[in-house]
Amino acid sequence: MTAVGGKRSRPLERQAGIGLRHPHVVDLIERPPAGLAWLEVHTENYLVDGGPRLHQLERIRERYALSFHGVGLSLGSAEPPDPAHLARVRQLADRFAPELLSEHIAWSIESGHYLNDLFPIPYTEEALSLVARNVEIAQEALGRPLMVENPSSYLRFVDSTMAECEFVAEIARRAGCGILLDINNIHVSAHNHGFAVADYLETIPAAVIGEFHLAGHASCEIEGSPILIDDHASRVDEPVWRLFEAALARYGPRATLIEWDNAIPPLEVLLEERSAAQRRLELATPGPARADAA
């Protein structure tokens, strides 16, 4: 795939945005907060024929840049992505022209059933070639570059033959796609599976990274073992801010999202979190990204 080779544009690279959540829509339309340049939506929520959701997104579009973050392509499935679903996403993307477009390295569809979660993949050669093929199919059908997000997970497969970060980096290399680096996911998975976060940052090249995600997680105990759950229901945790700072030092600034999907707080709290990310973005030095991309 050459759709996104060589020189990459990096929209919104010094802008922190927030996820658009229903309780905040009217405020964001009527009283746009100072400095907030972009919003991320879950693409599938807007795959409807008409009605208030699309009407509101039109009004949002007049004031903000947009990121479409998909949860339904199931790029990690052994089966190729559904052409009908791709066509619907393309139609929506053509209509709203989002500056950023992303999906997940995960799967959620099996035998035509959608399970509404992001399941992990065994990191094998077979999975690598199938997922890279799926990403290529998706980029081709969508007609625009796609970023794929590193997963958070609560289990591993005995059949894996490579580290998660190697798998993620190799998907980007083979499919020619970008990576949406979810900093919280690195922290959660590193904790749950005992790998070093530093390996992640060393393995994923700067050139492919187009966006960062930051979110809160929860800690719980199963059979006496602590496990982190990626629940997007709280403020960004301190170790995740530290890892974000390390990522900025390594990669330079990128569009950064505060994700908060459950137990949604007042808009002011989200904006405080956004400001904390924005301050760090403004301090970041450009990093080696452009040299890598040459």
């Binding site: 599938e44 949860v71 339904g72 199931s74 959620s108 035509g112 059933h113 959608y114 399970l115």
Partner: peptide
């Protein structure tokens, strides 16, 4: 009856 497509609407 699981969702037949990834559109919860």
């Amino acid at each position: 009856e699981l969702p037949a497509r990834p559109q919860l609407s």
